[in-house]
Simulated assay, not measured.
Amino acid sequence: MPYAFDPELAPYAELIPSVPLSEVIRRDGPPPDPALLAEIERRLPAYTPRREVTVEDRRVPGGAPLAGPGGARGEAPRETPGGAAGGAAGGAAGGAAGGAAGGAAGGAAGGAVGGAADGVLGGVPVRVFRPRAEGPLPAIIYLHGGGFVSGELDYFGVRCLRLADLVPAVVVAVDYRLAPEHPYPAALDDTFATLEWLTGAAGELGVDPDRIAAAGDSAGGNLATALALLTRDRGGPPLRFQFLDVPVTDDRLATPSMRAFTDTPMWNRPDAVLSWRYYLGGDGIAPPYAAPIRAADLSGLPPAFVAVCEFDPLRDEGIAYAQRLVQDGVPTELHLYPGAFHGAAIIADVALTRRMNADMVGALRRALHRTDD
């Protein structure tokens, strides 16, 4: 169906290949068309930091299973009443284009980290972006999109460089394990292990452990707020803020936007159905740490910024999650971007996406550099 995309975004929507998620998970599948890949890379945004930012690939302790069948780390999940599971939302500013266009967006970030899907016997792979600035600095744990099944750190290098430089903050991008080889809660286990490491290594990294935010897009937005739930329920380590960009929050496929957007670029309902099936390891009702909107109580979570796009199947569940946060007393800022599609802020450099990225930087800067610190 036709969509009234922002005029500057429309050419990007036409360029994005339509690749079913069932093909994305074929790790040995055929490579993308070289000409298409070259055109995608040519159009991807670039970023030159204003200050020096060092980039280092590391492996941090953890990644061993922390969860039992009841939920992450074995807690009995607290559920709200809900319909049967299905899947409402996956991740994916990475999506099909993520695998195809990974290299160019990495730019200054250097070479790719080995995929966490290969296992975590040597720890969780992370990429650390450290700006030259007077410290101690706040830190941001960044969790990439990709429908829980794909996504490369290189593809999100521009975003991480921008945040490190402009917030400024130490940014730790997590190369968490991917489904279907590693279903829930593997990715959340890796995320929590990264937070524990970051808190413990704060002195070495020049980080203020009281000013750590979790941020992510799509599936990464799911992991960011799931991490906030988990740290609240476990009593720490504490988070100061959560930035949720087009987040996955609901596994039920029941919202109007999820029902309507069956062929939108970057993410659509068929992708969401498969994404949830792969992430949960089959069909079934998701626990709240997998589908955060199912949590009975969101009170006590850190303040949030939620961004949603007009032509995104995840739009309405993002709005609903922001409403739940507000109703439970969590300071929350909600932005809906007209004319935008899922993942537009990652892949395009136009007036609208520049505003989206500026809003992200501004929200994190306000949260992490408050004058009362």
Rank of each mutant, 00 (worst) to 15 (best):
L9F: 13
L9T: 05
L9R: 04
L9S: 05
L9H: 08
A10I: 03
A10G: 03
P11A: 08
P11L: 10
P11E: 10
Y12F: 15
Y12G: 03
Y12W: 14
A13T: 11
A13S: 14
A13P: 07
A13E: 11
A13V: 11
E14H: 11
E14V: 10
E14P: 03
E14D: 15
L15G: 11
L15V: 12
I16M: 14
I16E: 12
I16S: 05
P17N: 12
P17W: 09
S18Y: 12
S18M: 11
S18L: 10
V19R: 14
V19Q: 10
V19W: 06
V19I: 15
P20T: 10
L21T: 12
L21P: 01
S22K: 11
E23N: 12
E23I: 02
E23H: 09
V24P: 00
V24H: 00
V24D: 00
I25W: 01
I25P: 00
I25A: 00
I25T: 06
R26V: 09
R27A: 06
R27S: 03
R27K: 06
R27L: 09
R27F: 02
D28S: 04
G29A: 01
G29E: 00
G29H: 01
P31T: 00
P31V: 00
P32A: 04
P32C: 01
P34A: 02
A35S: 15
A35D: 14
A35I: 09
L36G: 06
L36E: 05
L36F: 06
L37V: 14
A38Q: 15
A38G: 08
A38P: 05
E39W: 08
I40Q: 04
E41N: 15
E41C: 12
E41M: 03
R42H: 14
R43D: 08
R43M: 11
R43A: 08
R43H: 11
R43L: 15
L44G: 02
L44I: 07
L44W: 03
P45L: 05
P45A: 11
P45M: 08
A46Q: 13
A46R: 15
A46P: 01
A46I: 07
Y47T: 07
Y47M: 10
Y47R: 05
T48G: 11
T48I: 07
T48S: 14
P49E: 08
P49R: 06
P49H: 10
R50N: 09
R50H: 07
R50A: 11
R51N: 06
R51C: 05
E52Y: 03
E52P: 06
E52A: 14
V53Q: 05
V53S: 03
V53F: 08
T54D: 14
T54W: 09
T54G: 12
E56Q: 15
E56M: 09
E56G: 02
D57L: 13
D57W: 01
D57C: 04
D57F: 02
R58K: 06
R58H: 02
